[in-house]
């Protein structure tokens, strides 16, 4: 099937199998920033933004995304650099495998919620698992980045 995806603001016509998920299609198109850890929409590692909202690309049918906007880390370099700096300075990036999906979710959160508190941040990011960091460093980094004090 032919579908049209606007990936990082560039329109692309792509041939996909109807059962293919976004993750496979995007990797095939060279967006290797996207990682997969579970394949069952349980970990958030494969997160991409669909019309600005985080979705699990491992479980999202590519055909369902036809005509929509997809954002990967490659498409928001500046924002990624900005948040990434806080993450790295905090030492919160360990193996880094969860980082791209995490960053995209932080960006969506920033756009969606005004002035979140610690609990609000935790709730929004709850779908992003990280086995390395123990989460506290990520939280410290995001709080600093967003200027959340408590």
């Amino acid at each position: 099937m032919k579908i049209n995806l606007k990936i990082n603001n560039i329109n692309r016509d792509i041939d996909v199998e109807p059962g293919e998920v976004l993750y496979d299609v995007l990797r095939r198109c060279g967006f290797t920033s996207i990682k997969k850890a579970c394949g069952t929409s349980s970990c958030g590692v494969c997160t991409v933004l669909l019309d600005g909202m985080p979705v699990p690309s491992c479980s999202y049918l590519a055909v369902k995304a036809d005509g929509h906007n997809i954002t990967t880390i490659e498409g928001i370099k500046e924002e990624a650099d900005r948040i990434g700096k806080f993450m790295v300075e905090e030492g919160a990036v360990q193996c880094g495998f969860c980082s791209p999906g995490f960053l995209l979710t932080v960006i969506a959160m920033e756009r969606e919620i005004e002035n979140p508190d610690s609990q609000g941040i935790k709730n929004y990011l709850a779908g992003n698992l990280c086995r390395c960091s123990g989460y506290e460093g990520q939280l410290r980094a995001v709080k600093k980045y967003m200027g959340v004090s408590e």
Partner: peptide, 21 residues
Amino acid sequence: KSVPKKDGMGLTVGKPAYTED
């Protein structure tokens, strides 16, 4: 001294780095 991790930024922004990449 908390020197930033050398590969931290590259990994965070999703540069191809892992085996499958």
